[in-house]
Amino acid sequence: MIKQVENPVLEIHDLTVSYDKKPVLWDIDLSVPKGKVIGIIGPNGAGKSTLIKAIMGLIPISSGYIKLFDEKLDAVRDHISYVPQRESVDWDFPTSVREVVLMGRYGKLGLFRRPRKADIEVAMDSLRKVGMEAHAERQISQLSGGQQQRIFLARALAQQADLYLMDEPFAGVDAATEKAIIRLLREMAIQNKTVVAVHHDLQTASKYFDWIILLNLRLVASGPTEDVFTPDLLQETYGGKLTLLSEITTLMAKEQFPHREAK
């Protein structure tokens, strides 16, 4: 069940990604519609984060291509916002909540230019949207996990993008934050923005997302939640290891085989 759409926000064609010659995503082919909240779902080690990182150009791709708004990434960077996993940064870094959110404006500023008054206003407004304006001057190490995630979200909002790629926005947050985040994502979808979020809680998945991408080393399904979130497809994603596939990838890594013959 892989549903392709007309005028996709994000189109992935025959994408393979390898870490040190070991393929971790095989031949992904998908497209997603505009104005939806989209979940990437799959077990641990399925390559969910890898997919997002590949889209953002953070890791090299072995084959295939990715188009965003029918363009290459570099042409549309301004319209795309990436929210890394919360643990990916050092929260002991000597900076304040406001400064972190301001980083969301750096892309618009470019090299050497300092944040202007307008940027600070956008940052404060984003903080307000996630309910953290009272903590603007706080040192970031004083924040709880939920607050850290809200800050990352505020930083993404400050980018004023049209497509948001979020890596585990619900990981390790309290119930109140989870509710606040999902409400925000819904609002964004209403404003015709697209949100793609990595998620691994099956309990909430069907409630949170309009569209679901099931992933486990390969694409199992991509389509509207009601078509994709079925016992059979979930079983295919989570059950039964692809033993032969993993043997091949291990062999490829060991012998350092290239993924494509000539490149």
């Binding site: 953002m56 150009g57 953070l58 990436y82 890394p84 940064v89 980083m103 930083r155």
Partner: peptide, 8 residues
């Protein structure tokens, strides 16, 4: 602070 963001 956040190299991945800088790249993104």
């Amino acid at each position: 602070f956040d190299k991945d963001l800088a790249i993104a």
